[in-house]
């Protein structure tokens, strides 16, 4: 059985890049957010500036090596050095620096009179993300490994870490910000297009760092609000029979499932795991097979993670639990 699970785990990992009905993007060059758009623009400006300078330097080099090989008079050589080597770079660098600095206040609009309506607190943990929504009205809503946000509304992210340094980065939506133990960092994003995006942990944080990703779903504001309201209450499937197995096998000591006695805080909140795009922090498609393999061989799929492997459980129990988890929408 161990063999069955380890094989399927490996093939799942390989397939996960292409699996899933929706494809997610992780490119800073396909911006879908106001902040990311400015960063993309900055990239293109810097790249074009660099290209022009490179062409100029190489052109000059070729010109003096191939076309005009005369020695210059000392006077004109000095003036080329003065203008081309001192004045031009200083002025150009000054202009590029000014442009980059000029963008900065717009990327961090926190201090504005009207604060962001929605604040999302994300805490990095080896090797997953704890997520808490703080809507302007109503109690906080807990989730994990995925953030959802309304298109066209500015969201403030409060970024923390519970263990080591992680870094939060959803390239199509906004800039990168470290999550540092003992500190609270803030980041602003405003999605301008609906879609599914992917964000990797961008600071090496341990053995499974490369297996720590986050999905971000930008959705229409009305859809977002009804989704958030549904997240705030237990999932309909919570009362179904697989829940008893989940509790009996001790999963509840590490996981919360609203509407059951599972109240553990060591692992991700699973109250609505069935509605997420991916499982195990962005590395597996959200299918029953994938969830079952992760429960059985989390040690192989995510080496070093705090989720113990449960391959000693009867396969039928694992299946039943996976089916029940998939039903928590």
């Amino acid at each position: 059985m161990g063999r069955y699970f380890s094989l399927s785990a490996a093939s799942l990992l390989l397939a996960s890049g292409s699996a899933g009905a929706q494809t997610s993007t992780q490119s800073a060059l396909e911006s879908a957010g106001a902040e990311a758009q400015q960063i993309e623009m900055l990239f293109w400006v810097m790249l074009s500036g660099g290209t022009v300078i490179w062409l100029g330097v190489v052109g000059l080099l070729l010109h003096s090596a191939l076309v005009n090989r005369r020695r210059l008079a000392e006077k004109s050589a000095s003036s080329i050095i003065l203008w081309g080597g001192v004045v031009f770079p200083s002025v150009t660098l000054c202009a590029l620096l000014a442009y980059a600095l000029w963008l900065m206040p717009g990327l961090r609009p926190f201090a504005q009179a009207s604060p962001a309506a929605l604040r999302i607190e994300v805490t990095g943990r080896q090797f997953w993300w704890e997520v808490v929504y703080h809507p302007p009205l109503g109690p906080p809503v807990a989730s994990a490994n995925e953030i959802r946000l309304p298109v066209g509304e500015r969201v403030e992210l409060t970024l923390k870490s519970a263990d080591v340094i992680h870094s939060f980065w959803i390239p199509p939506l906004g800039g990168k910000m470290d999550m540092i133990p003992g500190r609270t960092n803030r980041l602003s994003i405003m999605a301008t297009k609906a879609g599914l995006f992917r964000g990797p942990c961008a600071e090496y944080c341990g053995t499974s760092h490369a297996l720590m990703a986050l999905s971000a779903v930008a959705m229409a504001p009305e859809a977002f609000r009804s989704w958030l309201a549904a997240q705030a209450i237990p999932a309909e499937g919570a009362g179904a029979s697989g829940g008893a197995l989940f509790l009996r096998h001790g999963c509840g000591s590490c996981h919360v499932v609203a509407g059951t006695d599972a109240r553990g805080l060591i692992g991700p909140d699973l109250s609505h795991i069935g509605s997420r795009a991916t499982v195990a922090a962005g590395i597996l498609p959200n299918t029953e097979d994938a969830v079952a393999s992760f429960i059985a061989r989390s040690d192989l799929i995510k080496p070093g993670s705090r989720m113990p492997a449960f391959d000693m459980l009867p396969p039928d129990d694992i299946r039943a639990i996976a089916a029940w988890l998939r039903g928590l929408r």
């Binding site: 000054c94 620096l97 000014a98 600095l101 990327l107 926190f110 201090a111």
Partner: peptide, 23 residues
């Protein structure tokens, strides 16, 4: 002196644009 002059300007430039500690 020329190098230092430019460097001092670059060091001070953020203060032209940043209006608060956080932005």
């Amino acid at each position: 002196s020329g190098l230092s002059f430019i460097a001092v300007i670059f060091t001070a430039m953020p203060a032209l644009f940043l209006t608060e500690c956080i932005r």
